[in-house]
Design a protein around this nucleic acid. Structure first.
Length: 294
DNA sequence: CGCGTTTGACCCGCGC
DNA sequence: GCGCGGGTCAAACGCG
């Protein structure tokens, strides 16, 4: 491993019992320039249905304030109050089992309108059934985990195979949001990728759900380097996602104490930093700590 | 031909 | 109720 020492900047840190929400920057210059993990946002909480999200405006503000272009020196300002983290009981996308159930309805419509009408009836009926089913089910969003990445490429390789299933324009942004699903048959993990409009160099990637299978690329990924970064817990980011989004993990300190290895570079959560490098030990909401070891 | 992407339509929740 | 915005579907299309 190279002997570069990551320098972390923490802004807008918001602490809660089980979660880390904040922005984290790694200023260690990478000769590869592959990417920099700028933020880690954990959308999971210890209570099952709650989802942590940064309100859009605030997260925009956080990133917006990058000062006059110091290439490597992307400082994220903090004008956000400590409660920038909302707890939402988000209703949404249940694991709907029969969205595509209308396929068998297609008939040879030789009878024109009649068949079409019949088709429509069945169609709407199916929809109503779907709706009834949906409303009766407890709406529950899968755990989500998002991070911001400084990268030139939108789609960051993470070891899994994804199929794009949608693209939407984002309000007030010239950059679209892309929706991906894991291609593995039994796996319903989703991934959302969008570029931050206020800083186009930043890519926001959001994962939702848990992989039910190992990464097909596990074998060729670099192993976490422990020597230069002696942290008790290190994850390869491709493997750690399941752990981070595993509900059982939420009850211990995996979330708070998480370190990532991305392309051989090391990242960790603020708590991890605090405990192991003497930084951020007495975190106040919205605390700002800037250390520059350049 | 199989698999992935594109893209317009549709669905749904939410705020007014 | 209506419009808006986000999320998803699925037919058409492209590519190897």
């Amino acid at each position: 491993m190279e002997d570069h020492h990551p320098i972390f900047f923490f802004d807008n840190y918001v602490a809660s019992n089980h979660t880390f929400t904040g922005l984290m920057s790694d200023y260690s210059a990478s000769s590869l320039g592959f990417m920099e993990l700028l933020g880690v946002q954990d959308f999971c909480s210890s209570s099952a249905n709650s989802v942590f999200e940064l309100p859009k405006e605030e997260s925009e503000d956080q990133v917006k304030a990058s000062p006059a272009d110091e290439s490597q020196n992307h400082v994220i300002s903090s004008s956000v109050a400590g409660d920038s983290c909302n707890v939402l009981n988000t209703p949404s996308t249940p694991n709907c089992s029969s969205i595509s159930s209308e396929g068998h309805l297609h008939t040879e419509d030789a009878d024109g309108e009649l068949v079409e009408h019949h088709h429509q009836q069945q169609h709407t009926k199916a929809k109503q059934q779907l709706k009834a089913k949906k409303t009766s089910e407890k709406k529950q969003r899968e755990p989500r985990f998002a991070f911001m990445t400084k990268s030139e490429v939108d789609f960051l390789e993470d070891g899994y195979r994804w199929r794009k299933y949608g693209q939407k324009a984002v309000k007030n942004s010239p950059f679209p949001r892309n929706y991906y699903r894991c291609t593995s048959a039994t796996c319903n993990v989703k991934k959302r990728v969008e570029r931050c409009f206020s800083d186009p160099s930043i890519v926001v990637t959001t994962y939702e759900g848990k992989h039910t299978h190992p990464s097909p690329m596990n074998a060729i990924l670099p192993s976490p380097a422990t020597a230069a970064f002696p942290l008790p817990m290190q994850f390869n980011i491709n493997q750690s996602f399941n752990e981070l989004t595993n509900p059982s993990a939420l009850n211990n300190q995996l979330i708070d104490h998480a370190a990532f290895v991305v392309q051989g570079r090391r990242f960790c959560t603020a708590k991890m930093m605090g405990d192991h490098q003497g930084l951020l030990q007495d975190l106040m909401p919205s605390a700002v700590l800037k250390q520059d070891h350049r």
